[in-house]
Design a protein around this nucleic acid. Structure first.
Lengths: 201, 201
DNA sequence: GGTTGACTTTACCGAACGGTCAATTATTAT
DNA sequence: ATAATAATTGACCGTTCGGTAAAGTCAACC
C-alpha cells in the first residue's frame, strides 16, 4: 500500500470508529484528522466531503461485517437453524465487547447512521439501503437452504422473510442500545425462529 | 395558558417537528428559536440546555403517541389480533402522511433519537428507555387480553413477547425509513403475529 | 537531473454552534 | 400604586463547523 493509501486508510478507520461510538454529526472532520494524525488539507485531498468519506466508511463496514460475521456465522457446516443461533451468538459477543470497551452497547453501525442521516443526505441513505440489500442476500441464501431441508414451507415468500428477519435484528439491537444492555440480544433474538416460522426438526 | 407557557409550548412544538424531520444534532437552538419566533434569551429562560428541552420534547411525544395512536388502536372493542391490525394501519397511514408532507418516511421519533443520542447524552438515553417502557405496558395489556381469550398459550412470557413486538416494530420502521418506502410497514408488520405466536381463532 | 503529479502543510474563510448576561418590558399580587 | 416576579430582548462569548487556497515536499519516471 502506497503512502497515500495508508493515510486514506487511517482516515477511514478513524472515522469509522469515531462515528460508530458517537454519531455522524458529533464527529467533525477536524477530530477525524487529529485521530488519524493527518492534516485537514490532506483529508480534502482524498475525500471531496465528509459525506463522501462516510459513504466509503459504510462500504468498508459492509465488507468487514460480511467477512468477519456473516460468512463465518452462516457457513454451511450447520443446519440453517443452527446458523442463525451462531449468528446471534456472534452479535451478542460483539456488543458485549463493545460495552466493555466503550461503556456502551453501540448497536448496528449501519442502522445508527441510517436513522440519523436518511432524511439529510440522500447518497448516504442510498448507500445504507444497498448495505441492507447485501445482508438480505445472505439471509435469503440460508432461507433457501432451510426450504430445501424442509424446515420451511415451500410456498413461503423467502424475500419477505429475509426482510422481516433483518428488521427484527435491527430492532433488537436498537433496544439493546437504548437499554445499554447486551443481554437483550440473547433474550430476544432467538425468537427470530418464530418470526420466520422455522420448524424444529 | 399564560403567555410564558405559550412561548414554551411553541419552543417544544418547533423542536419536536424540526428534530423529528431531521435530527437532534442538525437542528440548532438558533433555528428552533427562529421557527418558534422566540429570542435565544427566552429559550434559556425556559430550558437550562438543549438536552433538557429534548427530554421535555420526548415526554410530549410520548403523551401524544399514547393519546392519538396507542389508546385508540388498542381500545378493547376488538379482539387482540384485530387491535394489532388496527395499530399497524395507524402506523402505516401516519408514515404515508409524513412522506407526503416532508418527502421522507421519518420512522419512529423515539427510535431516531435513541440511536443518535444514547451514547452521548445519558439523560436522553434514560428518557427514551422510559418511553419504551410505557409502550411495553400497552403491549402487555393487549397480550394479557389475548392470553385470557385463549389466543396465546398461558405459559408464554408476556413481558418478553411485548419487548419482541416493540423491537420488531422499531426495526420495520427503520427499514421503511432507510428505503423511504411506507409500503414496507404494510408488508412486514402483520408478521408480528408470528413473532408473538398469536393463534388465529 | 529536471519535470510531473501525488501528497502534505499551514493559514484562512464565513457561518453556525451552545450558552451567558444585563437591561428592559409585561404581568401579577399586595 | 407599587413592589416583586415573570418574560423578553439583543448583544455577546469562545469554540467549532465544513470547506478552501496556496505554497511546499517528496518520490517516480523520462
Amino acid at each position: 500500500m502506497s503512502r497515500g493509501q495508508e493515510t486514506k486508510q487511517r482516515l477511514l478507520d478513524s472515522a469509522q470508529h469515531l462515528m460508530y461510538s458517537r454519531s455522524y454529526s458529533d464527529v467533525g472532520v477536524q477530530e477525524i484528522c487529529k485521530d488519524a494524525k493527518v492534516q485537514k488539507g490532506s483529508f480534502y485531498h482524498f475525500f471531496p466531503s465528509k459525506s463522501a468519506l462516510t459513504v466509503e466508511v459504510l462500504e468498508q463496514l459492509k465488507m468487514q461485517m460480511i467477512e468477519s460475521i456473516l460468512l463465518p456465522a452462516f457457513a454451511k457446516d450447520l443446519t440453517p437453524a443452527k446458523r442463525f443461533e451462531r449468528f446471534i451468538d456472534y452479535a451478542y459477543q460483539y456488543q458485549v465487547q463493545l460495552k466493555e470497551q466503550y461503556g456502551y452497547v453501540l448497536g448496528c453501525p449501519m442502522g445508527n447512521i441510517a436513522l440519523e442521516m436518511s432524511t439529510q443526505d440522500e447518497t448516504i441513505r442510498k448507500k445504507v439501503e444497498m448495505l441492507f440489500e447485501s445482508i438480505f442476500l445472505v439471509f435469503i441464501d440460508v432461507l433457501e437452504d432451510a426450504q430445501d431441508a424442509g424446515e420451511l414451507d415451500s410456498d413461503t415468500d423467502i424475500n419477505e422473510l429475509a426482510q422481516a428477519a433483518l428488521a427484527y435484528g435491527e430492532g433488537v439491537l436498537m433496544l439493546a442500545k437504548t437499554r445499554n444492555d447486551p443481554q437483550l440480544i440473547k433474550l430476544l433474538l432467538p425468537r427470530v425462529a418464530h418470526l420466520i416460522g422455522l420448524k424444529a426438526r
